[in-house]
């Protein structure tokens, strides 16, 4: 019984963490594009890997649906370019998407700071 409850708790925790990552993934992508100008899909996965020191690995199955969704929503725009004989698709934030990006980044930042406050409460000297 006890074991079962533990198992359910662990599964629930994993589920919530996954949802967190899924929810903030589009913001992470927007942040990267905001900072770096234009990037292509593989470059984004590499950049995230590099920045988080292999902690967060974005898979193609998570990345491309988000990129395509943002493109469909006209937050991003794509341009094709020939590189090494292959056609590469670069993504860029549109002027319309810029406001969305700034908003979402600020939102995620505030959320992360609040989480930090809860997880690492500062000892106050009274």
């Amino acid at each position: 019984m006890h074991k079962n409850i533990m198992y359910v708790c662990i599964k629930l925790y994993q589920f919530i963490m996954n949802q967190h990552l899924k929810g903030s993934l589009s913001t992470i992508i927007l942040k990267l594009l905001h900072d770096n100008g234009r990037m292509y899909g593989y470059e984004i996965t590499q950049k995230v890997k590099e920045l988080t020191q292999d902690d967060i690995q974005i898979t193609e199955g998570a990345l491309y649906p988000i990129l395509h969704k943002l493109e469909a929503e006209e937050v991003l725009t794509a341009e094709l370019e020939k590189v090494d004989g292959r056609t590469r698709k670069y993504y860029k934030i549109t002027p319309k998407g810029n406001a969305v990006a700034v908003d979402r980044i600020a939102e995620l930042k505030a959320f992360a700071e609040n989480l930090n406050l809860i997880l690492n409460p500062k000892l106050s000297i009274s």
């Binding site: 292509y40 899909g41 593989y42 193609e60 292959r86 056609t87």
Partner: peptide, 10 residues
């Protein structure tokens, strides 16, 4: 075509 190219590059 565009999807093909993108995935191929990746």
């Amino acid at each position: 075509k565009e999807f093909y190219d993108e995935m191929f590059d990746h």
